[in-house]
Amino acid sequence: MRLLNVTAFCFAVASAFLLYSLNYETRHLEAQIQGQERAAQKAKSDIAVLKAERSHLSRPERIDPLARQLGLMPPRPDQLVAPDVAAAIAVTGKAPVALRRLAESE
């Protein structure tokens, strides 16, 4: 009888201890999850800002004058050839007559 009581008491204490530690562990995990979520939220927000900044830096209004300063220009028609003509140039090493005339007419 006494042994049973003692055992039951021990069980009660042990389970209380277990319960509390579980409880605290859960809270700890919850806090960890919240922390991770906050970090993810922060990262998302940072990504949004960085995306906006990248778009702001690559806006044509800024790139255009920079490119012109470097001597770049919109492509002229004679700088572009159809893929089949490009292949012909690659084989013969010469532009077709019509294309050369186009270049000369500029």
Binding site: P74, P75, R76, L80, A82, A98, L102, S105
Partner: peptide, 17 residues
């Protein structure tokens, strides 16, 4: 048009053609 044609994927054709 000289500026945007290539951006829009319109290939130039030779003047002769």
């Amino acid at each position: 048009i000289g500026r945007i044609a290539s951006q829009l994927g319109v290939a130039p054709m030779s003047v002769v053609a």
